[in-house]
Amino acid sequence: MNEFVFATAQYESGDWDSAPLVPANVIDSIARYTSIDVAPTGAIVSLSSRDVFRHPMLYLTGHLPVRFTAAERENVTEFIRRGGFLFIDDHNHDIDGAFHKTVTEEIARAVGRLVQVPNDHSLYRAFFHFEDGPPTTSHELNGWGDNLVHKHLQGVMRDGRIGVLYSNKDYSSEWGYHPDNKRFLAVDNTKFAVNVVVYALTR
């Protein structure tokens, strides 16, 4: 009971399942670094179903244009109003890609406009400390996408808390590998995922 379940949002349009290895990797990091009770496997939740309200944190990603159905939009609105936390990552890591344009429009319609999350926000100190804000991904400067380092994340604030956290840094690619391969990294690049989860659980 009361265990954390990493839930991936499934939506009608686009490619919601573009980062299938991310949940396992994030779950591994939660179990590795924290004492949070975490379910060993993630869940896939249809954004148009009432199951959305069984998982207070949802992860949404993709490459393709996103258009919410009416039911999806209604659920997202209500989910955020009730205190849920939606983490959206642009799998394209570009400024003006199709996913970015459409999903930010949808979020604006469902919840409100995204604003810049300051780099000294408590999100960056929720567990590990990231003095410079969101950690850079290796995919931001690899020749794909816009070749820019996105210095800030964005969010929709609700009562002083982040309700929607939006990243176009492509953490979905950065964390999309088998957890066993962490041992080959000098620095575990999923640490920021721990911060996102701890923030969602405590703020």
């Binding site: 924290t34 949070i36 009770d37 207070p56 205190g83 009562d159 701890v198 659980l201 405590t202």
Partner: peptide
Amino acid sequence: RATWEAKFLISALEEVGWPVDARL
């Protein structure tokens, strides 16, 4: 501990107006 119960309890109390200290 850091659980959904803690998060939503703190939110609920703060929304009513209680100032909340927490150790999670």
